[in-house]
Amino acid sequence: MVTDLNTAIWNTLAAFLTFCIFSFLYKDNPFYKIAEHIVVGVSAGYFAVILYWNGLVPKLWNPVVKQGKWYYLIPGLLGLIMWTRFSKKYAWISRFSISFYMGIATGVAVPLYMQNFVIRQLSSTMLPVHFKNSVGFFNLLIIVGVLCALIYFFFSKEHKGAMGSAARVGIWTLMVGFGAGFGLTVMGRVSLLIDRVIFLKNYFTSIFGHIL
């Protein structure tokens, strides 16, 4: 029974905060502000604690203090000097950490990004075109769409004549992409609303179900 009461209290709070957030749809108000600040505060606080126990303690404190790996102090120091960003006089010191991080990130990411997000995507556009079935036709559609969309972003030649027609096809291709993205975004946003409405239905049923 204690658990049930606990659940009921927490669900009541959740339902109240849901209404607080929805109240913004009418107009901005203090209830919305309270709920908004709670979300920001709880998220930041949770993240700080998670980062402390999953980053700082196992990756710096334990190796240095418990395992005597003193060289872990070097990345620790690099992390610490990032805080000099807040001082106008000493902000330049943080560039050491930033350049170190940028160097590693660039070295790791650039070749793989080129391979996986450019070359693989280019090669997957090189498709067989035929008219034996719908696949061949759709392959043609993909090739034409990609080429025309690329032409739309080619600004060194005026979009006139054949170039203009291709650019027009390109913008239509982009519009189809944006339309799909918009439709899916609407679906995503409505899903969030559905979740809250189902939660409220279950909440009211659990509280008032025996009365109704």
């Binding site: 693989r120 090669s123 997957s124 993205g181 995503g188 946003r189």
Partner: peptide
């Protein structure tokens, strides 16, 4: 839902 359209090209490329 918001991300779905962005990841269809990776499905087509077999990634």
């Amino acid at each position: 839902g918001v991300m779905t359209a962005d990841y269809y090209p990776f499905l087509q490329s077999g990634q």
